[in-house]
Amino acid sequence: MDGSRGNLPAGLRGDYAAAGPDFTLPQDWAAYPPADHATWRRLYARQTALLPRHAAAAFRAGLARLDFATGVPDFAQASARLRAATGWALVAVPGLIPEDAFFAHLAARRFPVTHWIRRPEELDYIVEPDIFHDAFGHVPLLTQPAFARFLEAYGRLGETAARIGALQPLARLYWHMVEFGLIREAGALRAYGAGILSSSAETLHATAGAAPRRLRFDVRRVLRSDYFIDDLQPTYFVIDDYADLFDATQDLPALLAEARDAAPIPPGAAAPGDQPVT
C-alpha cells in the first residue's frame, strides 16, 4: 500500500499500513484475545434479545445461518456460508476505506468488514464502525437474494456517481436504505438496516419510538434527504419488499444527476409528496 487513504478522515484507529492496495488485510482470527470475544458475546446477547420483536424476518434467518453467537466471527467460515446463499464473501479491512475501493468490493460481491472490535466502554456508542456493526449489522441480510443483488448493483453505480459528481446522493441511498432501512411485514414495521440493528437505542427508536418520521420508500426523496451521522435518525424509509431496492437501481443514473442538482432536504424535514407509514 502506498500510504494514501484517499478521502478518509485523519485519526482512524485501524492499521492502514498493513492493508494492501485494495485496503484488505488478513483477518487473523486466531489473534483475537478472549476479551474481544467476550465483548462480541455481550453485544450479541443484547441485540439478539431485541430481534424477535423489532428485526426483519430475513435478518433473523440470515443471522441463524451464520452462527455468530459464540464470539468474533471467522470471516472464512462466514464467507463459505454466504457464497452458498448468494455468492458473497467477506474481506477484512482496517476500518473506513475510500469510496472507490468500497464500490469495487461491493460490485465484486465482497463485503468489507472492519477487523477490530470496540472497547468495553464503547458498547453504547462508537465513532467508527467496528466488526460488530459491520458483521452483525450488515452480513445477515447478505443471505437475502434480492438485497444481495441490490448491494452489488449499488457498488457498480459508484463509478457513474463519481463521474457525474453525484456521490452525495448515492451516499444518501446507502445511509437510508442499507444502514437505516425499515420493511413492512404483516402490517408491522421491522428493521433490516445495520445502523439500526447494531444499536439498541436506534432499534427501539426506529421501530417503536413516537418521534421519527417514517415514510414510504421513494428513491427520489431518499436521494435528496440529508441525515445525522452522530444522533438518532429523525426520518426512516419503509420498503414493502427487498426487490423494491434493486428495482430502484434501474433508473438511478438519471435520478442521481437530478438529485445532484436539487436542493437537499434537511434531516427530519417534510417534503411535498411524502407518504407517512404508520
Score class of each variant (00 low, 15 high):
149 R>Q: 14
71 G>Y: 11
140 P>H: 07
73 P>D: 05
104 A>H: 13
153 A>S: 11
166 A>W: 08
128 E>K: 04
161 A>E: 06
145 P>V: 06
85 A>E: 09
149 R>P: 05
125 Y>S: 05
166 A>I: 12
106 L>I: 11
148 A>L: 10
164 I>E: 14
75 F>D: 02
115 H>D: 10
154 Y>W: 01
130 D>Y: 08
80 A>G: 15
93 V>A: 07
109 R>K: 15
112 P>G: 10
111 F>Y: 12
76 A>D: 14
141 L>V: 15
154 Y>P: 00
151 L>F: 05
76 A>S: 08
139 V>A: 13
169 P>N: 05
98 P>M: 10
146 A>L: 13
89 A>Q: 14
127 V>S: 14
96 L>S: 04
74 D>K: 09
167 L>C: 03
120 P>M: 10
106 L>P: 04
99 E>M: 00
115 H>A: 12
162 A>S: 12
101 A>F: 01
126 I>C: 08
158 G>C: 04
146 A>I: 07
150 F>W: 14
80 A>F: 01
120 P>W: 09
165 G>Y: 03
77 Q>E: 15
127 V>M: 14
89 A>E: 15
166 A>Y: 11
90 L>R: 09
84 A>F: 03
124 D>E: 15
164 I>C: 14
129 P>S: 08
147 F>I: 10
117 I>E: 04
148 A>Q: 11
72 V>G: 01
71 G>C: 11
100 D>I: 02
105 H>R: 03
164 I>A: 07
109 R>Q: 13
150 F>P: 10
148 A>R: 10
144 Q>A: 15
117 I>H: 03
109 R>N: 04
117 I>V: 13
75 F>N: 00
136 F>C: 10
102 F>H: 10
133 H>C: 04
78 A>E: 12
129 P>I: 05
138 H>K: 07
109 R>G: 05
94 P>E: 07
101 A>L: 12
